[in-house]
């Protein structure tokens, strides 16, 4: 594989990590966050600026960056998650807008809208990204299959009923939001490592929205669907870069195309492409059996 192809795969993997972060928040616990890009911003800038100015190893500053994101998520969650879901969506969105302007405001450190590019080169970045993607997917899968996942699905379908069975909805939501934001934060750092430059535009509101769109396209309750959608919807438009429509590269139209896909999904397949299905050996075996049965006839 050449560098270009490796780059595409890395981008897609980072997209998967971002979407899995949103999956935990939105699909498990039913909170519609529109500010996940903001957590990517916080951790990425934190990590690389600290690494540069204090000369600390990047692994340490990455942990600090993620911790900073987690703290911000906690502060937002405490007043907001007691209220109606709409507040959460609006506040996370406001938070995203605020983060972009903070980056511009602190131009002295962040280099403003031009972008911060003093990011050290990390050698095995490809394998780091692949490894972390696998880890994050495993993490989310384990979480979904644990008691926390069950309680989340319960509170998502019926908050009042969940409370009546001892699920501490408020606390669980806060924890889930913080964890999901940590994963977004991780995606932000990897994005910086891969591209060697971070700009406020790169982490705009559109990115937060794009991740939600990927998620719903793949399937509202399916981690498999979310991961596949996160990967493919990032990859396909990149490979179609040279195709033109109305004299404009198809790449430019990608958001429009995503949106049309989502409108189709909402209208015709409201649970996303995979709905609640998950990949497992058992479903695969089930598919085979069905095929055999059909052949047997």
């Amino acid at each position: 594989m050449n560098n270009y192809q490796l780059g595409l795969i890395m981008n897609s993997c980072i997209s998967v990590i971002g979407v899995v972060g949103v999956f935990i928040i939105t699909s498990l616990a039913g909170m519609f966050s529109l500010g996940q890009a903001a957590f990517m911003t916080i951790s990425a800038y934190f990590t690389f600026i600290l690494a540069k100015t204090l000369g600390l190893p990047i692994l340490l500053t990455a942990v600090m960056g993620i911790a900073a994101s987690a703290l911000c998520a906690y502060i937002i969650a405490v007043p907001t998650l007691k209220l109606r879901k709409d507040y959460f969506a609006l506040i996370t969105m406001g938070f995203g807008e605020m983060m972009s302007s903070i980056v511009i405001m602190l131009e002295k450190y962040t280099n403003g809208s031009i972008g911060y590019s003093r990011i050290p080169k990390v050698k095995p970045v490809f394998w780091i990204i692949i490894g972390l993607t696998a880890f994050v997917i495993f993490f989310a899968w384990s979480l979904k299959r644990s008691r926390f996942g069950r309680m989340c699905i319960a509170l998502k379908t019926d908050e009042t009923a969940a409370k009546s069975f001892g699920v501490d909805v408020y606390r669980l939501k806060i924890r889930i939001f913080v964890i999901g934001s940590c994963i977004s934060a991780l995606a932000g750092i990897l994005y910086g490592l891969k591209n060697r430059v971070i700009t406020p535009d790169g982490f705009s509101w559109n990115l937060s929205a794009e991740m939600q769109i990927f998620l719903f396209f793949g399937g509202t309750n399916s981690l498999t669907g979310a991961a596949i959608a996160g990967f493919m919807l990032k990859l396909i438009p990149e490979t179609l870069r040279t195709v033109k429509l109305f004299g404009v590269s198809l790449q430019e139209f990608r958001t429009v195309i995503y949106c049309i896909l989502i409108l189709l999904v909402i209208n015709f397949r409201p649970n996303g492409m995979l709905g609640e299905k998950e990949f497992s050996i058992r479903t695969l075996a089930g598919l085979f059996r069905r095929k055999e049965a059909r052949n047997g006839k």
Binding site: T26, G30, F32, L34, K85, D86, A89, N206, A209, Q212, I213, F216, V248, E252, F253, T255, V256, C259, I260, I262, L263, I266, P270
Partner: peptide, 26 residues
Amino acid sequence: NKSPNIYYFLASLTISIIITSILNVF
């Protein structure tokens, strides 16, 4: 479909983005 509220978020968000990005392309 009487879908949960979260679909309204998604749909209205999609609309907002589709408009903005069409305008952005041109």
